[in-house]
Amino acid sequence: MMELEKLLLNRDKRAIARAITYAEDDEEKAREIIRKLYKRSGNAYIVGITGPPGVGKSTLTDRLVKNLVEEGKKIGIIAVDPTSPFTGGSILGDRIRMQDLTTHPNVYIRSMGTRGHLGGLSKGTYMAVRILDIAGMDYVFVETVGVGQSEVDIIKIADTVVMVLAPGLGDDIQAIKAGIMEIADVFVVNKSDREGADKTVLELNMMLDLDMPKEWRPPVVKAVAQEGKGIGEVLEKIHSHKEYLISSGQLEERRKNRIKMEITESVKNKLMKDVFAKMGNEEFDQKIQKVMAKEIDPYTVAEALYRQILERRE
């Protein structure tokens, strides 16, 4: 254990990988590592990359990171892809777009399946970000699954949320306005060499101008990640958002909220484990039968279950 921690602080990739596996598998060892090394966390700047499927999130991440490593920065990337709800399996293909970074000494990339977690990330993502932070990364990039309307968990992790869109989404921008559009700090219209890019930028700007005036008005940047166009500008906007967060005190606010969330999630997970441990036993099946027969309602059963768990814990 001591050895793993030492290696982790030296950014040994095998040690990072193993620690993240513990986090993903929800093992006590992951919490132990974080407990011991928590003081070392808080130095990484966390960038979320989100957007609908197929807009080029992985390619954009690849280019942004390439620029940053040239400045000598150390970077961790977590790329999340969906897990099949039926088989529990997944194909994680984000590395395909990041091949050149694979062997870079200052870059660590990890693919994660959502493993049943909704919201665009996996349960292990939160701890994995902490581990990369503790390992001394300057930046951690978190790429979400392709999002629809409600996968907004990235706001709970990232300091800056980059929303990637592509031309041709058209009226969809209006449709997805609430929810995922509200969490963006920087908009990128990728593949902007395609027809309709200017229209998409215009619509985004119109939409943003309709919003209540805010201290930070999210900028809209055009890019062609595949060709490396617009990458510098996207980084510039990320940096100016960071400066805004710091000068306005918002960074502290965001991080405070994140800690709050981490604590509540952790409590929730522990309780859920107790609930699932109860499920499947005979008594529980009987309750379900009773609900089916309308002898009792689900909420009364839930309340009783909750009380049982609390009493046992006391």
């Binding site: 099949s84 399996g89 997944s90 994680l92 395909i96 694979t102 693919s111 399946g113």
Partner: peptide, 12 residues
């Protein structure tokens, strides 16, 4: 392998 419940990392 995915359909057998495994997590497959495909690198191209």
């Amino acid at each position: 392998l995915r359909d057998a419940g495994m997590e497959v990392i495909y690198t191209g």
